[in-house]
Amino acid sequence: MKNGNVFWSFVRNLLKTPNKEQIECHLPKPILLDTGEMKDPYDWAPSILPVQILRIGQLVILSVPGEFTTMAGRRLRDAVKSVLYAGGSDLDSNVHIVIAGLANTYSQYVTTFEEYQVQRYEGASTLYGPHTLSAYIQEFEKLAMAIVRDEQVAPGPQPPDLLQRQISLLPPVILDITPPGVNFGDIKTDVPPRAIFRKRDIVTVTFWSASPRNDLMTEGTFALVEILHNQERWVPAYDDDDFCLRFKWARSSKLSPLSHATIEWRVPESAVLGVYRMTHFGASKNIFGSIRHFTGSSSAFIVA
Rank of each mutant, 00 (worst) to 15 (best):
D241E: 14
S168T: 15
G220K: 13
F243C: 04
T295H: 05
A124D: 03
K248P: 02
Y109F: 13
F247N: 11
I137T: 05
R74K: 14
V153I: 12
I196Y: 07
I196N: 07
G36Y: 01
L15A: 10
F281Y: 11
E269W: 12
G73F: 02
E219D: 13
M145T: 15
R120E: 06
W8R: 13
D90Q: 13
D190P: 01
S256G: 02
P268I: 07
E139P: 00
T204Y: 05
F247S: 08
R200C: 05
V11A: 11
P65E: 12
S297H: 00
V60A: 06
P171Y: 01
K29T: 12
K2D: 00
I291N: 05
M278L: 09
R77M: 03
A154I: 10
I99C: 10
I147A: 01
N5S: 10
T126W: 05
I202Y: 01
Q152M: 09
R194H: 15
N104T: 05
G181V: 13
V191N: 01
E151V: 04
R165S: 15
W8A: 08
F207D: 00
Y85S: 03
L143R: 05
E122R: 09
L59A: 00
S63H: 14
G66N: 09
W234H: 08
N286M: 07
P157D: 13
F288P: 00
A283C: 15
S82K: 15
D186C: 05
M145P: 03
T35R: 02
K20G: 02
S107E: 12
